[in-house]
């Protein structure tokens, strides 16, 4: 097992190194921030001093190595626009995004999997057809539209829930969280539902497909022949058998949602990192873009690593094979 972990960690380092080159080259090529940083009326002298201060007069390879050296020392640079350390900028926004994403992805998991199993258990029942209809809706309706409809219905027409912002927050571990207050939950509800709908649909589909397949197999038949109740069969045998694809997709969805919750954050004015990255792209704020993309890559690598470890926990057959 430890050999397996070391191997995966080495892979992760290689992936991050390659990512850093690609991201740096990509950002370097999309535009020169000088046009935005330096006012057109600046003198040649000011121009040159600014360029030198940001190290933009050096060859691109040298700039890259400076960046990596600083990165390894924990320095992600300063934002050109906000003139704040990038790390501080992002970590100030990240909790909001993490909170929104966790609530929606976990919600989708804990609601979607039981619904999907129910639909797979009795595929012909009316309840199963309704569940599948909802999941098709979740797949096919665009997120931004659902967001607008949610605001129109629950915030504008009914006035039950606020349309944007984080609401009251409470401190935990030195950070402000909305989920600790009732008012915070009321602000969290609509964006979380909006973000969760697509994931809910995926979870329902996965759980249903897995359940249908497992239900036809001999494992379930043998468990029934041993007199196990249907509830025990579903909760102990079937759930564990269908969990591997669900964990995979859960991990991927968690990563991609953290990175790309942009649309929902924009619609509900949720002050997360999505809004920050959109602004930084508009302003060619290289350090912010760079740091954001590196963090995203790191996030995916970490989540995949965790998912692989969870596989080994879920499926004993992988424990030996994975270490070799």
């Amino acid at each position: 097992m430890s050999g397996f972990i070391i191997q995966r960690l080495l892979q992760a380092i290689v992936v991050m190194a390659v990512m850093s080159v690609i991201v740096f080259a990509g950002i370097y090529s999309i535009g020169n921030p000088l046009e935005i940083l330096i006012p057109p009326e600046a003198t040649q002298d000011v121009r040159e001093r600014t360029i030198a201060r940001f190290g933009l007069d050096r060859p691109v390879v040298e700039q890259y190595f400076y960046y990596i050296r600083n990165l390894l020392q924990g320095d992600l640079g300063r934002s050109y626009i906000y003139n704040e350390p990038v790390l501080q900028l992002i970590s100030g926004r990240l909790p909001a995004t993490i909170e929104l994403v966790l609530v929606s992805v976990l919600g989708a998991l804990f609601i979607g999997v039981p619904l999907g199993m129910l639909a797979g258990y009795r595929p012909d029942a009316l309840s199963s057809r309704i569940i599948m209809a909802v999941s098709i809706l979740g797949f096919s309706v665009p997120t931004f539209w659902v967001g607008l409809i949610l605001i129109l219905t629950f915030a504008v027409e009914l006035g039950w829930l606020p349309s944007g912002g984080r609401g009251d927050t409470a401190e935990l571990l030195g950070t402000a969280w909305s989920f600790l207050t009732l008012n915070g939950w009321s602000h969290l509800a609509l964006p979380a539902i909006n973000l969760a709908l697509f994931k809910l649909a995926i979870m329902i589909r996965l759980a249903r497909a897995g359940t249908r397949e497992v239900m036809l197999g001999d494992t379930v038949k043998f468990a029934r022949a041993a007199g196990l109740s249907e509830w025990t069969i579903m909760s102990r045998h079937v759930l564990k058998l269908i969990s591997i694809p669900i964990v995979t997709v859960f991990g991927l969805e968690l990563g991609s949602t953290l990175a790309f919750a942009v649309v929902t954050e924009t619609i509900f004015s949720w002050p997360g990192v999505g809004k920050l990255i959109i602004d930084s792209i508009k302003n060619l704020d290289r350090p912010v873009m760079m740091a954001y993309l590196m963090l995203t890559a790191g996030l995916f690598v970490t989540i995949n690593l965790i998912v692989d470890l969870v596989y080994a926990l879920l499926d004993p057959r992988l424990r030996k094979g994975g270490a070799a």
């Binding site: 043998f222 468990a223 022949a225 041993a226 025990t232 499926d315």
Partner: peptide, 30 residues
């Protein structure tokens, strides 16, 4: 009655036993 007074075994034990549960767990459930 099933498993208590009338029981059944099938052809392929690879398919009937649950691959992701220990046999202790499967026997305890039964």
């Amino acid at each position: 009655l099933r498993g208590a007074r009338i029981a059944m075994v099938f052809q392929d034990p690879m398919a009937t036993l649950n691959p992701v549960l220990t046999i202790g767990t499967q026997m305890r459930l039964a």
